[in-house]
């Protein structure tokens, strides 16, 4: 490989120095301008701010009545402003797809890589295995609790899904990918992911369609505070949870070895 001569290298360095100086200047200016802007914003913690308007008041006052969810944040993200959250799941999906594009290995190459790696794999040892065996059921239970109670208490599909995904990563680390693959093969993984995303898209599509055309939506809200309440929020949380858990675990598996 031909290296640059000293003159060219010098030009590059000087260009870099100039770029650094300009960049620092720009960042400093940005900080100053933003601080100036903040100094004009309404005071922190105050109740009479522009953001305390009819929108947030109605979410609090009528959220339970209109969506059936006691967790108003869940009502906002899965009912009032559900389109954002559909986009958010699409972001997760896009990131997972992009990581697949970058890091996925062909099955043959994957098997070869795993075989090459085998002798260097450290023995996980009894501490990790036993801890994992004790922890994983609780983690899965906690994840499921967060997902299923997302409309009643803090939590929801994203946090619950992340916990579930973490439990699967722990399983994988403690017992090795072969064991995890027994219940989460590539095929099941994609079926879960695509199924959950399609259910989410279609269910919300139905709500958007009826809502946008002023047709009555026919989804019962249920008894407030019980587990079967909140209309579609519960099932949607489950779908979001599956998408999130799949994305978390899938990204881990792709980074780890380039496949399932």
């Amino acid at each position: 490989m031909n290296r640059l001569n000293d003159g060219e290298r010098g030009i590059f360095r000087r260009f870099q120095a100039g770029y650094g100086a300009i960049g620092l200047l720009v960042s400093g200016a940005l900080a100053a301008v933003l601080l100036l802007t903040v100094s004009y914003l309404p005071g922190f913690g105050q109740a009479d701010r522009p953001t305390e308007n009819e929108v947030s008041q109605r979410y609090i006052a009528k959220g339970l009545e209109e969506t059936g969810a006691t967790n108003v944040v869940a009502a906002v993200i899965l009912d009032y402003r559900a389109f954002d959250t559909l986009g958010e799941s699409a972001v997760l999906f896009a990131a997972l797809a992009a990581v697949i594009l970058l890091l996925r290995e062909e099955p043959a190459a994957l098997a070869r890589r795993m075989a090459e790696r085998k002798p260097f794999e450290p023995d996980q040892g009894p501490i990790l295995r036993i801890t994992a065996r004790v922890l994983i059921p609780w983690l899965l239970l906690f994840g499921a609790y967060l997902v299923l109670n997302g409309h009643l208490s803090p939590g929801g599909g994203f946090s619950g899904g992340a916990v579930t995904g973490a439990a699967m990563i722990l399983h994988n680390l403690a017992f090795g990918p072969e064991q995890t693959r027994r219940f989460l093969s590539e095929r099941i993984f994609f079926r879960l992911l695509v199924g959950a995303l399609c259910f989410y898209g279609l269910a919300k599509g139905y709500v958007f369609f009826t809502g946008g055309n002023h047709l009555p939506g026919s989804i019962p809200l249920g008894q407030a505070g019980s587990i079967f309440s909140g209309g579609l929020i519960g099932p949607l949380n489950i779908a979001v949870g599956i998408v999130t858990a799949c994305a978390v675990y899938g990204i881990f598996a792709l980074f780890d070895r380039g496949g399932w």
Binding site: E54, V55, R58, Y59, E66, D79, Y80, A82, F83, V207, F208, T210, G211, G212, G217
Partner: peptide, 8 residues
């Protein structure tokens, strides 16, 4: 996009 009018 849903059953709630504009600002909500």
């Amino acid at each position: 996009m849903g059953h709630f009018p504009a600002p909500w």
